[in-house]
Design a protein around this nucleic acid. Structure first.
Lengths: 141, 141
DNA sequence: CCGAATCCAGGATGATACTG
DNA sequence: CAGTATCATCCTGGATTCGG
């Protein structure tokens, strides 16, 4: 393996021209930054839920158990900023704000969905692996 | 939309039998828990790097710029526990520890790779969206 | 020398109360 | 309803230490 080709700095660019995924150090790229954003716990759930649907803030808040108002707001703002979700404000009383995926967000949704479905499909295997791990812990060392 | 079917509690199960991804509240499932783990910033990078390859600890540490020893150790332990990476210790001096993906990990790799490639392919669009967002901020409100 | 465990400071996150 | 402000808390990361 060539030294240096797998470097993965804060600002980097990656190329996937090879069978083995290669990380290439280049000037001013933001792959890591973007990946950190969309691979975020709450972002993934928001993207997964907003599939060809429009949801209001409170609806998302109720749907994603465990998220706080502040984090949901932050997450949605970031996704809006990155052009993944669209935010529509209705100047009514009481206020009404709707969120939906942009075309860019929809293209990302496919991948996120695949990740979620993988998780669903393999939860039993993972649970078994955990059991084996725990067993090994209490037995061996 | 039926109320309740999109609930997403800490312990939940999701079904994807419909075109619209549905989240269903069931007994003792761990989809959220697993998703939180693999959707973790460092986990994704580790999985992406360990494609059909074996890497040593220090090698991963160097490749993933910005990760600390402690977080890399923690991440690798969790992935090992979940049966996604395999850890091999060679009792030599100096010690040598190698990591590689398990078959389960390899199946996950495909999905993770897709996510990384999407990020790479769309980084320009996202950068443009950010510019538009900033512009809108400084202009309008 | 390599990898893991410990301790501490700083940043991220959650709960709550408040505003338009 | 949809956030914002504030404060307490938790987690992360870095330095150091330890063990092999």
């Amino acid at each position: 393996m060539k030294e240096g080709t797998f470097e993965l700095p804060g600002n980097c660019r990656l190329t996937s021209d090879y069978d083995v995924l290669q990380w290439d150090v280049r000037e001013g790229c933001e792959v890591r930054q973007i990946l950190d954003r969309i691979a975020d716990k709450w972002s993934l759930l928001v993207i997964a839920l907003l599939d060809k649907r429009t949801m209001r803030f409170a609806e998302l808040l109720r749907s994603i158990k465990g998220v706080s108002k502040r984090m949901l707001t932050t997450t949605l703002r970031q996704l809006e900023r990155d052009g993944i979700v669209e935010r529509t404000v209705y100047p009514t009383v009481p206020p009404k704000v709707e969120y939906n995926l942009t075309p860019l967000g929809n293209s990302l949704h496919e991948t996120v969905k695949a990740l979620v479905i993988w998780t669903e499909a393999n939860q039993v295997k993972i649970a078994e692996a955990r059991d084996r791990y725990e067993t090994r812990q209490s037995e061996g060392l």
